[in-house]
Every structure is written in C-alpha cells, then in structure tokens.
C-alpha cells in the first residue's frame, strides 16, 4: 500500500469530517432560518466529501476498513485534522471566520488536486471544488459584511480573527509524506497554495476593514495526532452510536 497516500487522505478526510460535524451543530441554532439551512448544507457537503475521501483511504490502506470504520472507530490520536476545524463554533462571527480561513485554503488546494496524478484524488477534488466555491463565496461575503458592518459586528469578527489566527499556520504543515506525494505528482506544492491563501485572506480582510494579527504564535500538532481537548468531545458525540451499538446499520 501507499502509506503516504493513506496518511494524506486521512488528513484531508478528517478536516472535512470534523468541520462538517462542527457545522452540523448549528442545526436549529442558526441566527436566521436561511443561515441555519446554509450552514447545514455546508455540513452535508463536508460530510459527503469526508465519505468519499475516507472510503478511498480505506481502499488504499487495504485492511478492509471503510469510511464508516475510519470515521466512527478511531480515537483522538488517530485523527489527523488541523486544529482549526475542531475549534468550537463560538458566535456566528467565529464560525464564519473559521469557515472563511478554511475555505480560502481548500479552494486552491482542490483546484490543484484536480490535476493530481492519482485519478481518484483528482475525481474527488473535481467534485469537491464546485461545492467549495460556493462555500468560499458565502463565507467571504459574510466576513466582509460583518467586518465592515456595525461596531459590534466588527469587534466580534476581529476577535474571531485574533482567536483563530494562531491555527492557520498548521494548514500549510509539510512533512516527508507531503514531499513524497508532491514528487509523485499526487499533491501540489504547499507553498503555492499558501500564496493563494494569503492573497484571498488579504483581499477579503482588507475589504472587511479587519486587521491581521501581528503576533507570531502558532499552534498545531493536529497532523501528528495531538489535538485540543475539543476533539474528544466531538468524537464522544459523533461516535456514540457506533460505540454503544457496535455494527449498527442505518
């Protein structure tokens, strides 16, 4: 099996799964009905992506695990999502900021992955990219509206940015796995993705009249399986059914 590809797919799939779960927590709690529906639509897209990615990860691994096994039967330390996506929803500004910072990363990433030398990775990227474009548009426009809105909405959005900024570096984490896959033409160079991410983030935050934090602190060992306490709570809820009733089928 291609150990590197498996590792990469787990990172990619876990990002989708965990942010999808976080967004699903908004169901019934959105600030307005339309936004409640929008956030749960996003959640559905992400969980759908996670299913395709993890299903393929299971195939690459070749140990007979499917997407459900990988989602429901792994523990915190086996998860490889970035810490950004497991951060709690907070208020609407925080959720939107988390979404925007993540979408701005996912769009150039999926664009590049459509050219992957691995056919299935390219297919998943092509499918996900279409949805990601809608997501990024939605989150960007909310960031602009909230940042350049009232004094209160500006303050909350700036606070959200200050809170989440420390988790953004990790999105561009790179190790031997990435380098090997890049050499094989399976994934793009992460520095190119970072350039595009910075461009989008700068443009939108400027229009939103928000200020980029200057402190250099950054956290992030999620790719190594070291998570914040938040992930355990997410998994407790997400995995409850499969843990309590092993093998339960829909």
């Amino acid at each position: 099996m291609n150990q590197n590809l498996y590792k990469y797919l787990i990172r990619l799939g876990d990002d989708s799964l965990i942010i999808g779960h976080r967004l699903s927590e908004w169901c019934g709690h959105g600030p307005i009905l339309e936004e409640d529906i929008a956030l749960t639509n996003f959640a559905l897209d992400f969980i759908g992506q996670a299913q395709s990615i993890l299903e393929y990860a299971g195939k690459v691994e070749g140990a007979g695990r499917d997407a459900d096994d990988l989602a429901y039967l792994r523990y915190e330390h086996d998860f490889r999502n970035a810490l950004l996506v497991e951060q709690p929803n907070g208020d609407f500004a925080l959720t939107m900021m988390r979404q925007f910072l993540f979408d701005a990363f996912r769009k150039p990433l999926f664009e590049a992955l459509t050219k992957s030398s691995d056919e299935q990775v390219a297919a998943i990227a092509e499918k996900s990219l279409k949805e990601t474009k809608y997501h990024l548009k939605h989150s960007s426009e909310w960031i602009i509206r909230l940042g350049d809105g009232t004094e209160e909405s500006h303050k909350r959005t700036q606070d959200a940015l200050d809170t989440l900024w420390r988790y953004t570096d990790e999105l561009f984490y790179e190790d031997e796995t990435d380098k090997a896959l890049e050499a094989a033409g399976i994934i793009p160079s992460i520095s190119k993705i970072k350039e595009e991410w910075e461009k989008t983030v700068n443009n939108v935050l400027t229009e939103a009249t928000l200020t980029l934090p200057t402190n250099g602190w950054s956290y992030g060992k999620g790719r190594a399986g070291l998570h914040s306490e938040n992930l355990g709570y997410i998994l407790a809820e997400m995995q409850y059914l499969q843990r309590a009733y092993p093998g339960a089928k829909w």
Partner: peptide, 8 residues
C-alpha cells in the same frame, strides 16, 4: 454519479 458529495 452524485449531484453533490453529500447528497443523502
């Protein structure tokens, strides 16, 4: 082929 990734 699915319409959307998460189409239930």
């Amino acid at each position: 082929t699915p319409t959307y990734s998460g189409c239930p």
